[in-house]
Each structure stands twice: as structure tokens, then as C-alpha cells.
Write a protein that binds this DNA or RNA. Structure first.
Length: 343
DNA sequence: AATCCGGGGAT
DNA sequence: ATCCCAGGATT
């Protein structure tokens, strides 16, 4: 398919969105944008990109920041390991690479938080190295255009699509080639109701011919969700009590209210009955969805809270200092709710 | 090879 | 409710 490159890039030149990270070839800014956009829509990541460019205008500024501040700036974006790895990687590049941003696919992959996709993106956008990106968009476009039924979440599928994408890449213009195929997936070849009638490659799309568009790409697994049961404690005073999550679990290195976790629904209800009596007030059961977990949460307002809780140190914090502490969306939402009720 | 890690928007 | 988003690390 010699047409594939020509058709997609011609379309891209006329129809692409004007996004800030497309107006630079600085690998640092491209890196920031790519990490922010991992598993994240452009619309959601855009303001975070602008914030990070503003707060960390250089690799050095990011490397010399405190992790807690980086997490605070990341708050609300999810997948917080991205922020921890981003900060770790900035220091890594300062030390192992003497402050010079790695400039090849091979070296980029040595950096924490940079995998196949991000290494290919930076290498092709910043250095025009002919390496193909394979992200969710690429899986969709290629599986449809070539009508491939190999599940994309198996090692065979990963290899097949990576090889095909690499076969298609343009040796001289890998940057616009990669951008074009992803933009096509984002704007035209969408998961639901793709706009095949205006698609620049509809004339060579095999899934369109075979009427299998709705069944591409194929995925083999479905994620199952674990139930968890949290009891959070809030003291009725001028201070807020926070504890840091340090264990290998969700929200690592973020802060939350002192927590008691029930390990079963039965224990959750038992504990709820007991704590309802001891508390001044308690919220209803709030459910908070994560990709692999469903959190069932009750907030209990207490007269007093211990300084140590479940073996973790509890920090007593002035309400005004709350903005220094990164917290999960669940906690942020509840703090907002308390503040609104006081008005 | 399988599982874990968030939050939000579209359907 | 379900899917999936400019994925990567860990086991």
C-alpha cells in the first residue's frame, strides 16, 4: 500500500487540530505531552500540558522540583505513576545522560516511564527517526484498513501490528506519518460510529469492504473489577488530618484522610453500624470507580482522631495548607462538598 | 502472559 | 452500564 502514506498525510495537512505540542520539536516538551496523553484524551490533558510547561519550563526545573509538588500539579489526571516516573526520569536524564535528552529510540527506552509508544513518538517527532508509533488509534486504523482479526491485547497481536506499522512508515517523513495515522483514528476512524464516508482511506479499507468495521479491533480480555470498602475519618475542627499512601496500591504517595478498610462487604456493613454511633455525622455510601476497582466509601465526622492510624503517621494540617498536598479525586470531591455546605 | 494503575467523556 | 482514551511497569 504505497497509497496509505500519501492519503493519510494529505488529509492530515488539511484537517489536523492545532495543538500546542505540535508547534515544537523540543524533545522535552514533546515528552511532557506524550506522558500526559498516555491513556488520556487530548481534551482532558490539554490544561495539564499548559500547566506543566508553565511550572516546569525546562528539564532542569522539573528535575529540581519536589515529587510532592509534581504530584500536586498532576492531581486529578489519574495514573499517578506517570507523574512519579516523569519526575524520576527528569533526574535520571540529568545524571545518566548529563542533561542531554536521549536522542534515539534505543536510548529513550532506557528512561523510566518511556515505553515503545512514547519512545517512537519522541524519536520521530523530535529527531525524525523512522520508527512507528502504535497506540490505541493505530490499532484501530490498521485493524480496519487491513481487516485484521488478531486480538490486539496478545503478544502475537502486539507484534503483528508493530511490524505492520513499521512496514508502512515513511523513511523521510516519519513524524507527519505517525501524526496522521493517530489523528485519523482520533477524528474519523473512531471506536463508535466512524465517519467512513469522509475517510481519506475509505477506498482501500478492507473492513469497510467486508463490513467488519464494528468488530475491529478485536480484544480478547475484559477487565474485572474488584470491590473495596473504605471508611474515612474527618475531625470536626480547624485542622485536617491526612495520611500518606506509601504502599504498592492505588494512589501511591498521595494523601487521604485516616482510613480503615474493610475486606468484605459484611465487615463493611458491620463496621458501618458501629461507626455510625460513634460519629457526629456520616455521609451516605459513595461509590468511586477506578479502572479495576469499585470503591465503596463512607466519610465519618468524628469529635477526635488519633495521631496514629493503622500504623501510619497522621499529619495535622491547617486548612490553608491543604493546597500543598496531592489528594485523589475522591478526597478532593469530598473536601469541595464540605466547603460548599458551609456556604 | 496477565494484571495493575485513574479519571472522564461518549454512547 | 460499558468502552476506551497519543501506555508502561510489574509480577
Amino acid at each position: 500500500m504505497a497509497d496509505f502514506h500519501l492519503l493519510t498525510t494529505d488529509w492530515y495537512r488539511q484537517n489536523h487540530r492545532d495543538l500546542p505540542w505540535r508547534n515544537t520539536t523540543d524533545p522535552y516538551y514533546i515528552w511532557l505531552s506524550e506522558v500526559i496523553l498516555q491513556q488520556t484524551r487530548v481534551a482532558q490533558g490539554l490544561s495539564y500540558y499548559e500547566k506543566f510547561v508553565r511550572n516546569y519550563p525546562s528539564l532542569e526545573s522539573l528535575a529540581s522540583a519536589e515529587e510532592q509538588q509534581v504530584l500536586k500539579d498532576w492531581q486529578g489526571l489519574g495514573y499517578y505513576s506517570r507523574a512519579r516516573n516523569l519526575h524520576f526520569a527528569a533526574k535520571q536524564i540529568m545524571n545518566e545522560f548529563e542533561g542531554n535528552f536521549p536522542s534515539s529510540f534505543r536510548d529513550l527506552k532506557k528512561v523510566k516511564g518511556i515505553g515503545n509508544y512514547t519512545a517512537a513518538a519522541i524519536a520521530s517527532f523530535a529527531y525524525k527517526e523512522p520508527v512507528a508509533v502504535v497506540d490505541g488509534n493505530v490499532y484501530r486504523v490498521l485493524s480496519r484498513c487491513f481487516d485484521l482479526s488478531t486480538p490486539i491485547d496478545t503478544s502475537a497481536g502486539i507484534k503483528e501490528f508493530q511490524d505492520l506499522a513499521q512496514l508502512l512508515i515513511h523513511p523521510v517523513h516519519p513524524d507527519i506519518h505517525n501524526q496522521a495515522i493517530m489523528e485519523l483514528g482520533a477524528l474519523i476512524c473512531t471506536p463508535k460510529k466512524p465517519e467512513c464516508n469522509v475517510c481519506p482511506i475509505n477506498s482501500i479499507c478492507l473492513a469497510r469492504q467486508n463490513k467488519t468495521i464494528e468488530n475491529r479491533p478485536v480484544k480478547s480480555k475484559k477487565t474485572k473489577v474488584r470491590q473495596r470498602y473504605f471508611h474515612y475519618f474527618i475531625e470536626e475542627s480547624n485542622h485536617i488530618h491526612l495520611a500518606k499512601r506509601s504502599e504498592k496500591d492505588i494512589w501511591q504517595n498521595l494523601f487521604e484522610f485516616p482510613l480503615f478498610e474493610s475486606l468484605s462487604e459484611k465487615d463493611f456493613q458491620l463496621k458501618h453500624k458501629e461507626l455510625s454511633n460513634k460519629s457526629i455525622y456520616h455521609s451516605e455510601v459513595i461509590t468511586h470507580l477506578l479502572s479495576h476497582q469499585k470503591l465503596n466509601v463512607v466519610f465519618y465526622h468524628m469529635k477526635e482522631i488519633n495521631e496514629e492510624f493503622d500504623g501510619r503517621e497522621v499529619f495535622k494540617i491547617d486548612v490553608e495548607r491543604l493546597s500543598d498536598y496531592p489528594v485523589p479525586k475522591l478526597i478532593e470531591n469530598y473536601i469541595d462538598r464540605i466547603n460548599n455546605e458551609r456556604k
